[in-house]
Design a protein around this nucleic acid. Structure first.
Lengths: 138, 138
DNA sequence: TGTAATTCCTATTAAATCGATAGGATTAAT
DNA sequence: ATTAATCCTATCGATTTAATAGGAATTACA
């Protein structure tokens, strides 16, 4: 299941992408509009900032903004930052690979084979979807 | 992430599908071969039995067996029994649908749109994979 | 220069879930 | 009867998740 962190993060990014204002978007505005607990949202946007997807301005009239245009923000990147590995088992993860301890030979493992297919089909979606698609700018 | 329950369950089903023995397959044999805690595996196989995928025979020389041939056992069914919903959010689940409380209009929700695509691409894999594929009988 | 408004940071908590274990009841073969 | 297997219920510890709390740092602007 998708974590609320990811769900809130995606909604927030969509909100920011849709904003036409000159000024950066404030956490309070997003929280109110999207019904997200503000303090929780703060920490999520901070994560997105540290990963380089968002930029921020502190102090009065501060807030968050996209560092690049929505068309350039791929779901692969967003999902990895918010949700972690895209693969359902780490032994088929491209970016977070780890060997299974209970599995001698990966290539002989039936779960491995299945999960590679799931990973690839999911990746195919995320690689072909940008924030612009989410925010309806295409 | 895939739960260990599902991972163990898939491995166990594969093991049973590969068994050429006349007699049903015993939990102890699977546990030993696949390095799965036996008591945990017991409860997993029981779940698979209650769902109708496995049959069982009690008492001495008892064990578990497939109720239909591997080619007829779809991953959609197995995954739903072991892991639950295939969708990442319940508002796009076909078999476990639930409305989001924080979301007024589903069709206007950017997360919803994205997760429908992920669901469909994952379903496409599970609908086209049977236990026979996992156990290498094709 | 002071005050208000905002992001930034750390710690804590409550609840839920997961993985595993324990102990025994029930059933069937020999 | 005895043995060996599934079946059933309950519990436990660890981890993760979602959220809250409190305040430090920074900036705009009067």
């Amino acid at each position: 299941m998708l974590s609320k962190k990811t769900k809130y993060g995606l909604k927030a990014l969509t909100f920011i992408a849709r904003s036409t204002d000159e000024n950066p978007v404030q956490v309070s505005a997003i929280a109110k509009s999207e019904q997200i607990p503000q303090k929780f949202l703060e920490s999520i946007l901070l994560t997105l900032k540290k990963s380089g997807i968002l930029g921020s301005k502190k102090g009065k009239h501060g807030g968050y903004y996209l560092r690049v245009s929505p068309e350039e923000i791929l779901m692969t990147e967003v999902m990895r930052v918010l949700e972690g590995p895209i693969a359902m088992v780490s032994c088929v993860s491209l970016n977070f690979y780890e060997k299974c301890d209970d599995c001698a030979d990966e290539h002989a493992c039936s779960v491995n084979k299945l999960m590679i297919q799931v990973r690839d089909s999911t990746l195919n979606v995320f690689r072909n979807t940008t924030l612009a698609d989410l925010s309806g700018q295409n």
